Simulated assay, not measured.
Amino acid sequence: MTSHSKIEQAALQLFGERGYDSTSTLLIAKSAGVSEALLFKYFQSKEKLFEYLIKQGFRRIVEANRGILTEQNPRVLIENVIDLPYKLVHDEPDFWKMQDKEFNRPLVQKYFQRFMSPIDNLLQQAFKDVGADDAEMTTQLLLLIIQSLWRNLLYEHDPHLQKLGDHLKRTYLQRTPAK
């Protein structure tokens, strides 16, 4: 692993555990096993390191989940969106903990909205396609549940959370007739 990668991993973990304000560049460098000078050589400042982590994290997530956005079957799209928090937390737990802890920062909100906006629109269309009574409200309710589920998956180790996705699929797809 390169020094750059070690700094990234250490920063992700520490920002996720402690938050941005409670994490110093010295602590990140020590945790990564590099000098603070090397951290500054790569990233210039803690703020630029944080910005880099947010941008790269969302870039990785969008690339890894691009297939969701191209799904043509509306029922499969709905299932994929319900599965998304499980996949995201499993694949990138440190990134999502950091993102959750720093959600009030405008940069984080900007990238989160960029990520969610197409999902919102596609999900709404999928609910229209399967004949949901109120596709807009159904979408908003499901996304609210998914956001809560995602946050709980980050911190809770309740076995019922794993079963909740299957329950959501049954609930949301039972209401809608298969076309």
Rank of each mutant, 00 (worst) to 15 (best):
32 A>Y: 11
34 V>M: 07
36 E>H: 04
37 A>D: 02
37 A>Q: 10
37 A>R: 07
38 L>C: 05
39 L>M: 14
41 K>C: 01
41 K>N: 05
41 K>P: 00
43 F>S: 06
44 Q>R: 08
44 Q>A: 09
44 Q>I: 01
46 K>R: 11
47 E>Y: 04
47 E>L: 08
48 K>Q: 04
48 K>L: 04
49 L>A: 11
49 L>F: 03
49 L>C: 07
50 F>E: 10
51 E>Y: 00
51 E>P: 00
51 E>F: 00
52 Y>N: 12
53 L>R: 07
56 Q>C: 09
60 R>E: 15
60 R>F: 14
61 I>D: 14
62 V>L: 13
62 V>Q: 15
62 V>K: 15
63 E>F: 02
64 A>T: 03
65 N>H: 05
65 N>E: 02
66 R>N: 09
66 R>Q: 15
67 G>V: 05
68 I>P: 02
69 L>A: 07
69 L>Y: 05
70 T>L: 05
70 T>G: 06
71 E>I: 05
71 E>T: 10
72 Q>E: 09
73 N>L: 09
74 P>I: 03
75 R>L: 13
75 R>G: 07
76 V>M: 07
77 L>V: 11
77 L>K: 06
78 I>K: 04
79 E>I: 05
80 N>Q: 13
82 I>E: 00
83 D>H: 06
84 L>G: 07
84 L>I: 12
85 P>G: 09
86 Y>T: 01
87 K>P: 03
88 L>D: 01
89 V>K: 03
91 D>F: 01
91 D>R: 01
92 E>G: 01
93 P>Q: 02
93 P>T: 01
94 D>R: 11
94 D>F: 09
95 F>Y: 06
95 F>H: 09
97 K>W: 02
97 K>N: 12
99 Q>F: 05
100 D>Q: 06
100 D>F: 09
101 K>E: 06
101 K>D: 02
101 K>M: 12
103 F>Y: 13
103 F>E: 11
104 N>P: 01
104 N>D: 15
105 R>H: 13
105 R>F: 09
106 P>N: 07
106 P>D: 04
107 L>F: 04
109 Q>D: 03
110 K>S: 15
111 Y>C: 08
111 Y>Q: 12
116 M>G: 03
116 M>I: 06
116 M>E: 02
117 S>F: 08
117 S>K: 14
118 P>G: 14
119 I>N: 08
120 D>A: 06
122 L>W: 02
125 Q>S: 14
125 Q>M: 14
126 A>E: 11
128 K>R: 15
129 D>Q: 15
129 D>H: 11
130 V>S: 09
131 G>C: 12
131 G>Y: 15
133 D>N: 14
133 D>K: 09
133 D>W: 05
138 T>M: 14
138 T>H: 07
138 T>S: 15
139 T>K: 13
139 T>Y: 10
141 L>E: 13
141 L>Y: 12
142 L>N: 04
143 L>P: 02
144 L>H: 06
144 L>G: 14
147 Q>Y: 02
147 Q>N: 10
148 S>D: 07
149 L>W: 13
149 L>K: 14
152 N>W: 00
154 L>S: 03
155 Y>K: 10
155 Y>M: 09
156 E>C: 11
157 H>C: 06
157 H>G: 03
158 D>T: 00
158 D>A: 01
159 P>T: 05
